[in-house]
């Protein structure tokens, strides 16, 4: 695999950093990252990873764009209200960088479809907003031996870490062995 002249020009700022360089940029181009969610976290994730030159971005979300999303979900616009979020974010990413392959999954993740999906990617990034999905994603990443980049927000606080228990360190269950009682979960 090699970069086209257009790509060399586009990624100049990466190529001139010794820590990235041609070798690193080719790694980006050969990599496949799966984003869980195309909302508040998924928007900047998709837009920046796309712009940075990741070869393939998979994006899972089954929601549609709502007016009240636009205050933070910056991949979507007024014209996208009512459209599936995955379609809207795909257009936004490709408008910035048509070199990226964007594969969208307008489905709810379940224990029946998640493992086959994870197998196709190198890194999983969780931008989901509920405990069911977080535990499902954590367990599936462990069973498929994929590193999981975790992020969550509540009010004014954010949490970020990387889980890769097959390699080293804890998983999400090491931190939170059980979800909070259902009637205490803020909606």
């Amino acid at each position: 695999m090699a970069l086209t002249n257009e790509e060399i020009n586009r990624y100049t700022r990466h190529l001139t950093l010794p820590e990235i360089g041609m070798e690193g940029q080719l790694k980006f181009k050969e990599s496949k990252i799966l984003l869980i969610g195309a909302g508040g976290l998924g928007s900047p994730l998709g837009m920046y990873l796309g712009a940075a030159g990741i070869g393939k971005l998979g994006i899972v979300d089954f929601d549609v764009v709502d007016n009240s999303n636009l205050q933070r979900q910056i991949a979507h616009s007024v014209a996208d209200i009512g459209r599936p979020k995955v379609e809207s974010i795909k257009e936004t990413i490709l408008a910035g960088n048509p070199n990226v392959e964007v594969e969208i999954y307008n489905v709810r993740l379940t224990r029946d479809n998640i493992l086959a999906l994870f197998e196709q990617y190198d890194v999983i990034v969780d931008g989901s907003d509920n405990f069911e999905t977080r535990y499902l994603v954590n367990d599936a990443a462990y069973f498929t031996k994929k590193p999981l980049v975790y992020g969550s927000i509540f009010r004014f606080e954010g949490q970020i870490t990387v889980f890769h228990p097959n390699h080293e360190g804890p998983c999400y269950r090491c931190l939170y062995s059980n979800p909070p009682p259902a009637n205490l979960v803020p909606s």
Partner: peptide
Amino acid sequence: LPGTVGLMQATEALKLILGKGRSLIG
């Protein structure tokens, strides 16, 4: 806040691909 957190996640994802730097594992 989602922008700040999402971009920290994006940075970690790129570092995992690159195999450089110190990741947030642990």
